[in-house]
């Protein structure tokens, strides 16, 4: 059963073709990485999946229903969670309050009180000690973790992560990979990952989608992608022909 599906997503800004006919299918519990050079359309793609940007053409399906026209907050409540490239927090709230916002809007039957849900997530991600702190006093890595906690408190079934490892040290990246793996295992949360840290991508992703200039140039397992000539061209440029892009 397919969890999240993008069919022929195209986005045009004025004369600029940001995305051209991109397809993606994510199964429950699967981990997919979307990679590509800067400006390849990766973040735009996440914006289309979450409803922040309407696609020019194409459809987005979640759990079998068409959500292309559904507002962002409704998609979130269905189970699409997302973090941002630089982390976006509510600056006038404490860590706990930040996490509670999502727990409150995405309550489903059988969930505990939002405060308990939020505390559980913070404990799990190792931030319980900072619960009462103002988010302004946190380190960059902690801020990004708080954002992750807020998304998790909304009980997502698919997690869209925009460069989660950027700005983290290697120890923090290690922890992040472990926690994401645990989430997938225990709750069969699917993860779609945009990442430049190839070490993390190769270790974590089961499948990789490569975008360049808004189009899919390759899709496959990490092994297949590593040896794909089109990918090498896109990343390395020199010495390779541009004709096939």
């Amino acid at each position: 059963m397919k969890l999240l599906q993008a069919c022929g997503v195209t986005k045009v800004y004025g004369g600029l073709q940001a995305l051209t006919d991109v397809d993606l299918t994510v199964m429950p519990g699967e981990s997919v990485a979307v990679i590509g050079p800067n400006g390849a359309g990766k973040s735009t793609f996440l914006n289309v999946l979450t409803g922040l940007t309407p696609p020019t053409t194409g459809r987005v399906l979640f759990d079998g229903t068409d959500v292309t026209k559904l507002a962002t907050h409704k998609r979130v409540r269905l189970g699409i969670g997302r973090t941002f490239q630089h982390g976006r927090l509510f600056s006038r709230m404490s860590v706990l309050e930040n996490v509670m916002t999502a727990a409150e809007t995405c309550r489903r039957g059988g969930d505990g009180a939002p405060r308990e849900t939020a505390m559980r997530v913070l404990e799990r991600m190792g931030l319980a000690a900072q619960a009462a702190e103002a988010v302004g006093s946190l380190s960059y890595g902690q801020r990004r973790m708080v954002e992750m906690c807020r998304v998790l408190a909304g009980k997502p079934r698919v997690l869209l992560l925009d460069e989660p490892a950027a700005g983290l040290n290697s120890g923090e990246v290690e922890q992040l990979v472990e926690r994401l793996a645990a989430l997938r295992e225990e709750h069969s949360v699917a993860v779609v990952l945009i990442e430049h840290n190839m070490g993390m991508v190769m270790r974590f992703a089961e499948r990789i989608l490569v975008l360049n200039f808004g189009s899919t140039i390759a899709e496959g397992t990490p092994e297949e992608i590593q040896s794909d000539p089109a990918v090498l061209t896109a990343y390395l440029g020199e010495g390779y022909s541009h004709a096939d892009l």
Binding site: L52, T72, V76, G81, F84, S91, M93, T101, V151, G154
Partner: peptide, 21 residues
């Protein structure tokens, strides 16, 4: 939670929508 939702919408509109608000 309603008050928090208002503060969230002011602090960061996009993050608020992404939190289901």
């Amino acid at each position: 939670r309603h008050g928090r939702a208002m503060i969230a919408a002011r602090d960061d509109e996009i993050a608020a929508a992404m939190s289901g608000i």
